[in-house]
């Protein structure tokens, strides 16, 4: 217990590090994931194939493998990060999470009633107009709860960065537990609380949004 109070500066820094990593890679994953989702429903064949292949491949890859690639393998290909830690983690998490963002958005698009798109087309809207004016505004609403779930998963996934030279909550857990073995339990529960502080409000928010946007189609 005393360890937790004494080392609180360190712990607070780790909490902020986790938050930063989550926020940066979350925003980037949303952008790239939306682009992927657009590719997957677009009328252009090669783009569709690319989106499908990307999602298939990345969803079946362990996140640790993704990190391993950017930290140990990419330098051999000439992709070198100025420093280890933050940016490789952002890239790995963004590329990984975007495939789940893409699937969440696509399932939202799939849930929009078929009549909506037909109505849009019948009044002469093009593909781009149908998608942006009619389908996406509705798909977006149904996609918010699964998107929040993806963000919750992302928050927990940032912990993998602990194994690749980024000092966030789990890395601090490892360091503090090694230094004060007898306090291991307190450290675990204290740090677990920091994750729950992020994930539980997000989960509650998702539940509320879902109740709010749940409407009969």
């Amino acid at each position: 217990m005393t360890t937790f109070i004494e080392e609180f500066g360190l712990i607070w820094g780790a909490f902020l590090a986790t938050l930063t990593l989550t926020a940066v890679s979350g925003v980037l994953a949303l952008v790239w994931g939306t682009a992927l989702a657009t590719m997957r429903v677009s009328p252009v064949g090669p783009l569709r194939s690319f989106g499908t292949a990307y999602v298939e491949l990345v969803r079946n890859t362990p996140l640790t493998l993704m990190f391993f690639f950017w930290v140990f393998v990419a330098p051999s290909f000439g992709l070198l990060f100025p420093e280890l830690g933050f940016w490789p983690a952002v890239v790995a998490l963004t590329l990984y999470t975007s495939s789940f963002v893409c699937e969440a958005l696509r399932s939202g698009v799939n849930s929009v009633g078929i009549g909506q798109a037909e109505a849009a087309r019948s009044i002469g809207l093009t593909f781009g107009q149908t998608l942006s004016q009619v389908v996406l505004p509705q798909a977006w609403r149904t996609s918010i709860p699964p998107l929040i779930s993806v963000l919750i998963a992302l928050t927990k996934n940032t912990s993998v960065a602990a194994g690749f030279a980024y000092t966030e909550i789990v890395a601090i857990q490892q360091r503090l537990t090694n230094a004060h073995p007898s306090d291991g339990f307190f450290i675990f529960f204290g740090l677990a609380l920091m994750y729950l502080v992020i994930t539980i409000p997000l989960g509650v928010l998702a539940g509320q949004v879902e109740r709010k946007v749940a409407f009969a189609r």
């Binding site: 969803r59 079946n60 362990p62 996140l63 640790t64 789940f100 699937e103 969440a104 709860p145 699964p146 929040i148 779930s149 993806v150 919750i152 998963a153 927990k156 996934n157 993998v160 989960g203 998702a206 539940g207 949004v209 879902e210």
Partner: peptide, 15 residues
């Protein structure tokens, strides 16, 4: 639902 397991999962999402 959102708190349910389908899109949310530890390091993997269900593929």
């Amino acid at each position: 639902g959102p708190t349910g397991p389908i899109p949310q999962s530890g390091v993997g999402g269900p593929a």
